[in-house]
Design a protein around this nucleic acid. Sequence first.
DNA 1: CTGAAAGCGCTTACAG
DNA 2: CTGAAAGCGCTTACAG
Lengths: 347, 347
Amino acid sequence: MPEKNAAGHRGPGRTPTGHDVAGAAGVSQATVSLVLGGKWEGRVSPRTAETVRAAARALGYRPNLAARTLRMGRTRTALLVVPALTGEFFAAVHQGAVEVATAHDFGVVLYPSPEGVERAPDPFASARTALDGVIASSMAPEALATLRGAGLPLVMLDSDEGACDAVVGVDVADGMRQVTAHLLAAGHRHVAHLAAEVDSWTFAVRESALREALRAQGGAVVRTGRAPLSVRGGLAAATRLLTAEGNGPAPTALVCDSDLLAAGALKAARRLGLRVPEELSVTGFDDLMLATAVEPELTTVRLPAERVGAAGMRALLAVLEGERVETARLPVHLVARGSTGPCPTTR
Amino acid sequence: MPEKNAAGHRGPGRTPTGHDVAGAAGVSQATVSLVLGGKWEGRVSPRTAETVRAAARALGYRPNLAARTLRMGRTRTALLVVPALTGEFFAAVHQGAVEVATAHDFGVVLYPSPEGVERAPDPFASARTALDGVIASSMAPEALATLRGAGLPLVMLDSDEGACDAVVGVDVADGMRQVTAHLLAAGHRHVAHLAAEVDSWTFAVRESALREALRAQGGAVVRTGRAPLSVRGGLAAATRLLTAEGNGPAPTALVCDSDLLAAGALKAARRLGLRVPEELSVTGFDDLMLATAVEPELTTVRLPAERVGAAGMRALLAVLEGERVETARLPVHLVARGSTGPCPTTR
DNA sequence: CTGAAAGCGCTTACAG
DNA sequence: CTGAAAGCGCTTACAG
């Protein structure tokens, strides 16, 4: 009978329940539930309702989520499956906490507090039971296998997977088309592609879209290199790409599948004594913070990350309501910066 | 009576309960609970136990977490409170999902799938009810106010707050001492400090530790600039710092409170025609991915982020067991790279 | 307008 | 070795 937790927290005595509130207000527990659940109008007198609210406030009552969930059969919780959070500080903090938690059969709910002056949502709103559905990135395939069998509503992000209830896509193909148009307008015709060595839908699309767009408009991919998705990987692969000989015309532009690779490419160019953008143009993809930290700043494609998350959640809510959900494909746009310039006439 | 959810998922019929397993195995529901809970030895015959396990497997039984939580009074869930995830792609995806979810009174459980070949923990292990305790960064003060009143066990990260049950610190003061020693050994005596304009414990410590260490060893902070925690902010503040006149001796080294600020400082130096590290040394803090993406690569201080998370979780588990928890202070170390060099003799 | 009662799916004494 | 029963705290028909 857990009247308090092991460390004696939650102050003196038990956590108040609806029954306690009922006692304090002189009504039944059912009435408390009705009032606090906002379903009292026409069923409880306004005066009684106010009494109940006052009692709840006085006791610091918080409804027990487990009980509500058990009764309702709905958890109001979604699972967001993403690739390991991009390698920054708090992502790693979270990872470490999850590892220990998992070993102790504990779960970790992450609550990213909003920046600046935005309203702070109640942290406790994030804390719920089990799952009603899943929103998953196509970049986390191992996790997907586990999820598939669960029979939960599933929304895929950035994928063309059929085995799910809705898809929220990002128009990366159009992003590559915009990159292509930008380079062709600057006179480039011979492009090298620094591709991510990652087996996922989004990178397959980037590759085919780039080839197609170039061919359609009179340019060509003259070389392709592959690298693991990191600055180091980009540096090594770009060095190989830029020093390869006898493989047809030398590229005047290097299109990278990600800003990470592009940052590596910038380092490679510098070490090879190639000036960017005078002698070589470089483009990234994603518009990470990195893109404006390096010099020159990267011409890249901005992806509407927050909108992807929002659209994914909306799609899941719609699926749960039994509504039909159209496949969304969110627009992206090119951000031209200093890493691209006119095609050098001599090379 | 929610036999299936609104969209008709979970396959045919109801989600199986312990009672269904009991029926299939020809035992009581209590026996099922004992067996599946691992508490059957000496109470249930091995044969019966095996029958139960087989039936559970056949039905695809998963215990209802809400029911278990309600019965146990423990949720086995921790809340990790951090500042908005550092501005990379999936952090923003998460943010967007949380916003919509919150508006619909939904929670979002984040499950970062592990990179590479590491074992993939069961995604469902992360999905739990309510909270047993909280692990919080001192950089999310607004959220803390809400948490304070809840009476939950609280572990603070990187803080000296007294109003909590345990503290897991990072020895940032020692990090600044290592930076100082590194610069003094290279001959620098006049240091400018590019401080983060963030009101949190960790930055207060960085500032005082730097001043103290320099003074103790014959150097001095000759100028201090403050900037919002971003590359842009660092660029602007570093430009002011490096062009200020008549404020005593010119600095030969710029110590930054974060890699973001240092990346901005590098940009400022380049625009002012100052070569790094020949004419100016720059140091960062945190060792983000950014640190090796920029040129020259940043001399910085590596923080054991994963260990912070792990130690925080461990501390919370200990608090929940009613154990005394000592304040930890995890070590950090300097990573020397290309952005620092010998003090220029002429300036 | 208000209360008594059922039941969500578990775990754990308690009988046998 | 196994089962019947209580009860965790809610929500929601159903009576009155």
